[in-house]
Design a protein around this nucleic acid. Sequence first.
DNA 1: AATTTATTGATTGATATCCAATCTTGTGTT
DNA 2: AACACAAGATTGGATATCAATCAATAAATT
Lengths: 258, 258
Amino acid sequence: MSSRSQAIADTLTRAIIDHRLVPGCKLGERELAEIFNVSRIVVRQALIRLADDGLAQIERNRGAFVAKPGMQEAIEIYDALTLVEQGVAAQLSDRLGPVGWAELRQHVERQRQAVANGNDALADVLGQEYHTVFVRLSRNKVMQDIHAQLLRRTTLLRSLITADFDYCNLLDDHARLIDLLEKGRLKQAMELIDTHHRAVVRGYIMDRQVFPEMTPREALAPYLEGSLNGVAKPAVAKKMEEEGAKATHRHVHASKQT
Amino acid sequence: MSSRSQAIADTLTRAIIDHRLVPGCKLGERELAEIFNVSRIVVRQALIRLADDGLAQIERNRGAFVAKPGMQEAIEIYDALTLVEQGVAAQLSDRLGPVGWAELRQHVERQRQAVANGNDALADVLGQEYHTVFVRLSRNKVMQDIHAQLLRRTTLLRSLITADFDYCNLLDDHARLIDLLEKGRLKQAMELIDTHHRAVVRGYIMDRQVFPEMTPREALAPYLEGSLNGVAKPAVAKKMEEEGAKATHRHVHASKQT
DNA sequence: AATTTATTGATTGATATCCAATCTTGTGTT
DNA sequence: AACACAAGATTGGATATCAATCAATAAATT
């Protein structure tokens, strides 16, 4: 393993994109140090990594908090994501061979099956992963890192919103994008990426108030190595289960850990 | 000021993009701690920041070194930069008003004067800054950060190469890009950005061997607050002065501190 | 009673010291 | 010359400590 601070940063990242640690949540050094059973210094280093990634915000002499982006920043993140994916699309439309297209199609198919089976949590993960696979095909690690970071930040954003859009629609977009690109209709493909993300960000109604409902200790418990309780579940998914399937479509926006 | 580790990270970044700290150079914790007169831990935090930025590489139990990207990574960085700037160009061609175009033109003009006056160092800084101004016009902070980071990494790359291309050519590119974009010839503009960067990366002949010729202490001396020796000079520029103006065109690729 | 001021407590930023693990180097042996 | 082994140095991390700052309460004044 690389360094302990990196491991802790990874765990915190996981917890944040699983929506177990929500924006605004205080990340006290001493508290985290106790939770992870390490010294404060290691925690501090982890927090620095998180802040560099845009997932945490460190305020001098006040401590670190899970980042709480405003609407403006949300728009900027999605604009940046659009820009990156459009660029990758342009590259792929030239260079990608049939094997690549097949991989993408297969991925979409897996997501379609997940939707058919009612496994919304899996479908959501696959929906996210599609974008990752897409960018990976560019064979550019630098670009992949940038994109992955942007994706994490969009996932964080979903903690702040009421998800009221239908992502079955978005699944179609994924399939259509492949078709358009393979046929070389780049202009339309880029248009599609733009509308796709706009559809997402339009659905965002930032309800400024987010209530933690969990202490960091509870939120992080499932990730600690001592845990024998199986795999950690996203906070939202859990809530959904408790509430039962009230809506016809359940929109789970948390990612399951790999 | 934010934190000391951030300040040190900034100084190290400055030194790296000024080519005073060259790729492969060891960044020992104890040594830097003495130089900056801080504890090792603060240095370590600074190094973590640098590594997250792609400017340093931390090897477990071996320490930190100034990053030494290979040819593959160089290509990827420039591809990513191309992708970002093409995307920004596409946005700007729609949305940018005459004020924005004027700002860009004014910037090119300043660089042209610098070239005319033989102030190559300034010309180089302005040439870099052009790209920054360009992206700033997108009014997207997230994108600006990503772009700035990529630019820093390209500057690092210039430590590894023999600069043998004529950047007067590139200055023309800057002016032409504005013309093309304002006239809405987006396709050609994007092509130009691509060739522009390819021209740069083509000129790269990575001479694997880079000799430090400076200890970190010497390299960092000009940036320490105690220094009354005036402004730090880029290592390359200094060397140029010593050698005198042997070539008809001097190609200075280090940036002066602001 | 309400507002302002002080005091207290908690948290962060940072240092010094110490220790274990690991890497490097130098030496000695075969 | 090649290999093994033993210092020596460096990193990763823990702990304890201290100053500075923020938050919240208690006290004092109007």
